[in-house]
């Protein structure tokens, strides 16, 4: 690979933009195709499919054989609430490969001492989220139990199309939450994207166990998206 091509590839990755490096396996020729440039490329259909699946692979036959190195942004996890569950979730999510950030406006909770492994933002969601930049490659879990903090974050996650959005709370708490969010103009189909009660049903009891259930559900959303979610991602 030419160094300038590798540098461009890394630059796209750094700003969380999807792209593909096409390597012609016969000649060794390579080119970088940014997501925005796919339509103009001779391999457009294959590139579109590769970007939708996020999978690298060989395409074509014989002299046309090429390898597609597909880059979609690394998954991120934004945890709303610097709470006990978050203290277990943050290091596990980081090990699993998620760029993890904690956000909580309560400065007594949101401290680097409590979260040595990951960045901590001690701000209200409406202040911090524009700079953070939610996107479809980001998961959000809302764990504060406080609608003043969780709700504004969930609203932005729904608008941004985050690939996973989960919120802590019982079914009753969640029913009230849905009423409040519906008042923001979200339809039932959009609100159905919220995972609540949060986490896979593994009978988790302690905060660290709940963190395992939450992380497992986030991974499931990433690797085995629901059919409707996969269709949205491809569109």
């Amino acid at each position: 690979m030419r160094l300038d091509l590798l540098a461009s590839f890394n630059a796209e990755r750094a700003v969380r933009r999807a792209c593909v490096v096409v390597t012609a396996l016969g000649s060794g020729d390579q080119r970088l195709v940014r997501a925005a440039e796919v339509a103009d490329d001779p391999l457009a259909p294959a590139l579109r499919a590769a970007l939708a699946s996020g999978r690298s692979g060989v395409v074509g036959e014989g002299a046309e054989r090429a390898f597609l190195t597909v880059e979609i942004p690394a998954p991120r996890l934004l945890v709303i609430g610097a709470v006990h569950i978050s203290q277990a979730l943050a290091p596990m999510a980081a090990i699993a490969g998620f760029d993890t950030t904690i956000l909580d406006p309560r400065t007594a909770f949101a401290t680097a001492e409590r979260f040595p492994e990951v960045p901590v933002i001690a701000e209200w969601p409406d202040v911090a989220l524009p700079a953070y930049g939610l996107d479809p490659f980001t998961a959000m879990v809302a764990l504060t139990h406080d609608p003043k903090i969780d709700d504004p974050a969930l609203v932005e996650a729904l608008k941004a199309g985050c690939f996973y959005i989960g919120a802590l709370g019982s079914r009753r708490t969640h029913a009230k939450r849905l009423d409040r969010l519906a008042a923001h103009g979200f339809d039932a189909q959009t609100l159905a994207r919220l995972h609540a009660p949060i986490g896979l049903d593994i009978g988790a009891a302690s905060p660290p166990e709940i963190a395992v259930a939450v992380l497992a559900e986030v991974i499931q959303a990433l690797r085995k998206p629901r059919p409707s979610q996969a269709a949205e991602a491809a569109a």
Binding site: L3, N10, A74
Partner: peptide
Amino acid sequence: AREDDVLAAAERWRRDGRGVALATVLE
């Protein structure tokens, strides 16, 4: 090492003047 680090390292090592190769699982 995550994939990010690997490709970033490839670029950094080359810029440092080292001879560098990149191996990729094709199939």
